[in-house]
Simulated assay, not measured.
Amino acid sequence: MLRIWLLIIGYFIGNIETGYIFGKLNKMDIRNYGSGNAGATNTLRVLGAKAGLVVFLGDFCKSLIPCLVVRFIFRDNISLSYVYMLYIGLGVVLGHNFPFYLGFKGGKGVASTAGIILAIDIRIALVCLIVFIITVAITRYVSLGSIFVMIILIGMSHFLVRFSYGFGDGQSSMEFRLLTAAIGVLSIFMHRANIKRLLSGNENKIGKKVEK
């Protein structure tokens, strides 16, 4: 039951749609421009770098802070603290991607997932950051960098859970792997249109401006 409550709490936190709020402050619905989602990348493309940074930090912190709070509350049981943290983190991403008051049309959850990654392990976060920067610098495709980050999240979490978090081979270990896989796969699924455009060569590159 606690897991369900953590998902629900996370979902409502995720409904704090930073991109949509920032757009409304600029008298626009950000979802009507660019790629049509309320995330940091589209805000960057439509409203510029400062707006994109503000939205990224908002979406990043709304997952990072609840995850760290949950880890602290359940710190006496290391393995369960990680599992519970992932439940609230998954809830945040679901709330961000599918906000009920916006017709379930939000962002793609990359910034919020980045907050979860940092809460899990700074080593995973650093590797993800390096790969993301290199990928975007070479290809100028933010979506491709985001997809690579999710693959790294799944792979490194699967490896490190066995050696770094005190799980052993019990149920918590399997639950941790399933949750990190679910978070990563969800983000990749949200990029399905980007994947189609990447394969066809029509994906938008970073730095390309759109008409406001």
Rank of each mutant, 00 (worst) to 15 (best):
Asn97Phe: 12
Ser200Pro: 07
Tyr141Gln: 07
Val110Asn: 05
Ile4Tyr: 05
Thr180Ala: 09
Lys108Glu: 12
Tyr84Gly: 03
Tyr33Asp: 00
Tyr11Phe: 15
Arg3Gly: 04
Ala114Tyr: 12
Leu153Lys: 02
Tyr20Trp: 13
Phe167Trp: 08
Val46Leu: 13
Lys50Gly: 03
Ile4Val: 15
Arg177Ala: 15
Arg162Gln: 08
Leu2Ser: 10
Gly14Lys: 01
Tyr82Thr: 11
Ile154Asp: 07
Ile73Lys: 02
Glu175Leu: 14
Gly10Phe: 04
Ala193Pro: 02
Val92Pro: 07
Gly107Arg: 02
Asn204Gln: 13
Ile73Thr: 08
Asp29Arg: 11
Lys27Cys: 05
Lys208Val: 15
Arg162Cys: 13
Leu68Lys: 14
Gly115Arg: 04
Tyr141Val: 05
Ile154Gly: 13
Gly207Met: 15
Leu153Cys: 11
Leu44Trp: 14
Gly103Leu: 12
Ser200Gln: 00
Gly115Tyr: 08
His158Asn: 13
Leu94Asp: 03
Asn194Arg: 11
Val131His: 01
Ser35Phe: 13
Glu17Pro: 00
Gly115Leu: 11
Lys209Met: 08
Glu203Val: 12
Ser112Phe: 12
Leu6Phe: 06
Ile206Asp: 00
Arg140Leu: 15
Asn42Met: 14
Leu186Val: 14
Arg71Trp: 00
Leu179Phe: 04
Ile9Tyr: 00
Gly201Lys: 00
Asn37Met: 03
Ile183Asp: 00
Ile117Tyr: 12
Ile13His: 09
Asp121His: 04
Val161Leu: 13
Ala111Gly: 11
Val185Met: 11
Thr135Lys: 03
Ser200Cys: 12
Lys209Trp: 14
Met28Leu: 15
Val92Met: 10
Met85Thr: 11
Leu126Asp: 01
Phe98Met: 13
Met174Cys: 09
Ala181Met: 10
Ala119Gly: 08
Gly34Ile: 15
Ala49Arg: 15
Ile188Tyr: 01
His158Val: 13
Ala40Met: 09
Gly109His: 02
Tyr20Ser: 09
Ser35Lys: 10
Phe159Asp: 14
Leu64Lys: 06
Leu64Glu: 06
Ile73Tyr: 00
Thr113Trp: 00
Leu57Gln: 02
Phe159Trp: 02
Ala40Asn: 03
Ala125Met: 14
Gly103Trp: 08
Phe56Leu: 11
Arg177Phe: 07
Gly155Asn: 07
Ser35Arg: 09
Phe12Ser: 06
Gly166Asp: 08
Tyr82Arg: 07
Ile65Thr: 12
Val46Met: 11
Gly36Tyr: 12
Ser157Arg: 03
Leu2Val: 14
Tyr87Gln: 04
Thr41His: 04
Ala137Arg: 13
Ile21Arg: 07
Val185Gln: 02
Leu6Asn: 06
Leu57Ser: 06
Gly48Thr: 05
Lys105Arg: 14
Gly103Asp: 07
Met1Leu: 15
His96Glu: 09
Gly168Cys: 06
Ile154Thr: 09
Leu7Cys: 12
Ser146Cys: 10
Val127Pro: 02
Ala49Trp: 14
Ile78Pro: 00
Tyr11Gln: 05
Gly168Trp: 05
His96Gln: 06
Ile4Gly: 05
Arg71Thr: 10
Arg31Ile: 08
Phe148Val: 07
Gly89Leu: 05
Thr113Cys: 08
Asn97Met: 10
Gly89Pro: 04
